[in-house]
């Protein structure tokens, strides 16, 4: 009986360790973990230098987990996609989109297909994709789910489940490429920068998988910060974070995103994403 009580006490003490002021940040897990780890450990070091506080990157397993961590104030800053950013800011009063990549003003989705399907590249989403199998990225992805779904509905007047014989979620963009390349899915939709980078680095066999359609543009990724950071880290902290992000110039750091640089952003930049989200029923 006594060890039971001691265990309970030990558990409680283990749970109540307090942390000093550390800026925690997270990112949607849109790519291979190695890539994310490499990219964001650099970002953490960079921000720690610029801001003079401890900065810790918190890796998560799903898009929703990153939104939840932000909402729960377990992270104060996040690199979100368009849709996850809208979801997060809707749930946290005062949360603000402060910076986006230059490329994020005009982001695109690529539709790719296994070459075995014989689907050719076209100026509109080819009609021949009908009846094929489709891999989205994560369920919460903007470029791998929301926008492709929107364009599919626009093109065929039907939800993806009715256009394709099977619709699945790969989990992230890197995985979408792998699954379409292996033939597990015939068609896939993903973030164009991930595709371009994989092709550039030779990590994809373009004899087995090719781009069949490039979507129109829309706003995507952004850095979002909580409204209450100044109370916690001191006056003007939000501005300092913003400045730090905008002045990120290390080519190696930018290349890891990959973005050519960061520019200011605002919540209003993402109103199209909200509208599309509501139209497709992914946002209330």
């Amino acid at each position: 009986m006594r060890w039971i009580l001691i265990t309970l006490l030990a558990t409680l003490t283990a749970f109540t360790q307090a942390n000093a002021e550390t800026l925690y940040f997270t990112a949607i897990p849109d790519e291979d973990e190695t890539r994310l780890e490499e990219r964001f450990s650099k970002v953490a070091d960079y921000l720690a230098d610029e801001l003079d506080v401890d900065v810790r990157f918190v890796p998560v397993k799903s898009y929703a987990a990153s939104v939840t961590a932000f909402r729960n104030n377990q992270v104060q800053l996040a690199w979100f996609g368009g849709l996850s950013g809208v979801r997060a800011r809707d749930r946290v009063d005062g949360a603000e989109a402060i910076a986006q990549g230059v490329e994020d003003q005009e982001f695109r989705s690529y539709f790719i297909a296994n070459t075995g399907t014989g689907i050719e590249k076209a100026d509109e989403l080819p009609g021949t994709v009908q009846g094929k199998t489709l891999a989205f990225g994560s369920r919460g992805s903007t470029s791998g789910r929301l926008m492709p779904e929107y364009y599919i509905r626009q093109r065929f007047g039907q939800p993806p489940e009715d256009v394709f014989s099977r619709v699945g979620f790969s989990g992230n963009h890197t995985r979408t490429v792998a699954l379409v390349e292996s033939g597990a899915y015939q068609v896939g939709a993903l973030n164009y920068t991930v595709w371009d980078k994989l092709v550039e680095e030779g990590d994809v066999d373009t004899d087995k998988v090719r781009v069949i359609w490039k979507s129109p543009t829309y706003p995507d990724y952004q850095w979002t910060i909580r409204g209450d950071v100044n109370e916690r880290f001191g006056d003007g902290f939000k501005e300092r974070v913003k400045e730090a992000l905008l002045s990120m110039e290390d080519p190696e750091l930018l290349e890891s995103f990959p973005r050519s640089g960061f520019i200011p952003a605002s919540n209003d930049d993402y109103s199209t994403i909200r509208e599309v989200g509501q139209e497709t029923g992914l946002l209330d």
Binding site: T7, A10, T11, T13, A14, Q17, A18, N19, Y24, V58, A69, Q74, V75
Partner: peptide, 9 residues
């Protein structure tokens, strides 16, 4: 309980 790790607050 001492090896659970601390997680986020």
């Amino acid at each position: 309980p001492f090896f659970l790790g601390d997680g986020l607050p």
